[in-house]
Nucleic acid binder design. Structure first.
Lengths: 168, 168
DNA sequence: AAAGATTGAAAGTTCAATCTTT
DNA sequence: AAAGATTGAACTTTCAATCTTT
């Protein structure tokens, strides 16, 4: 019998298939942000992260979200979000409001100018997402990507899905 | 026939399946780097990008690569790479050498200390990659991820596949 | 003491400019 | 002029510390 079976995953190393998947995933992870930032910067004077902040607020009830919820939705740490909201506030795109029911908390809300900014930025951003990510994939692959990313997020994102009993 | 077919991609917006795939992909893109950096920082005093630089050099002939090649392999801009190599050089993990055949070029080479650093860091890093990315996927999904990431890279990475004569 | 959030300093990245060699 | 690479300043993120409220 063969001593080493490459189809069996050895904990210490990655086989060829695993390596290919991993190397390509980190390549996407490293390159995508720069592309998104460039387009949004040039066309709308926003970083991709700023865009995400505005986008999440734009879809929230009252266009308002607590800082901690917003940090989860934008996949950011609270200090990062706080700094960015400070900048967006300075540009008049977002406003901070106290939360009456809990005086430790802060609400971030989209201003009218913030709404206009996201509405103006969206079409170009969507076109970029299509061009670089969605267009090169078949509909089946889009579906597969959603499933695969969800599986990774179940490990990587504490708030991903409420932990289900089985089939995690 | 129905006026609007949600399975047909409208250029301006994303349908539910596309949106799910996209939102989850950017969540992975935003969260993964922090996880990789944390583990490597704590256990090996390296960022993930520094790890990649050392890893690519460790597998290159003579453990040596030109700066521009290394920037492609690590998915980084040249200024970013240059700054990081300067820091790694300061720590004695990498050395810069002139390229005899082209005096504009610079080779980066792994020192013995750099080799030892990557050898020491690798097992913990591989374990993290398994834990957060590979383990939650089935072998088929690992394969699908490789295919999907390659398709995205064909748009996102100019050096992805050697530019073929047609179908650019 | 823990939760929610902010702050300032340190670290890393990006951008534009620059330099040398081809 | 283009290619290969580096530099310094500006900007952004991270880390640790801090503050207030629960």
């Amino acid at each position: 019998m063969p001593d080493r079976d490459r189809s069996t995953s050895e904990p210490q190393w990655l086989d060829d298939a695993e390596m290919a998947a991993w190397l390509r995933l980190i390549a996407v992870v490293e390159r995508l942000p720069g592309i998104l930032d460039s387009q949004l910067r040039q066309d709308s004077n926003l970083t991709h992260f700023e865009y995400q902040v505005l986008a999440m607020l734009s879809e929230a009830p009252d266009r308002t979200l607590r800082m901690s919820e917003l940090s989860l939705l934008t996949n950011a740490t609270l200090p990062r979000l706080s700094h960015v909201v400070t900048r967006l506030e300075g540009r008049g795109l977002v406003a901070r409001l106290p939360v009456p029911t809990d005086r430790r908390a802060t609400n971030a809300t989209l201003t009218e100018a913030g709404w206009e900014a996201i509405v103006a930025a969206a079409p170009g951003h969507v076109a970029t997402v299509r061009e670089y990510v969605l267009d090169p994939l078949t509909p089946r692959q889009v579906q597969q990507l959603a499933t695969i990313a969800a599986a990774i997020l179940s490990r990587v994102d504490p708030s991903a899905t409420a932990p289900r009993p089985r089939d995690g």
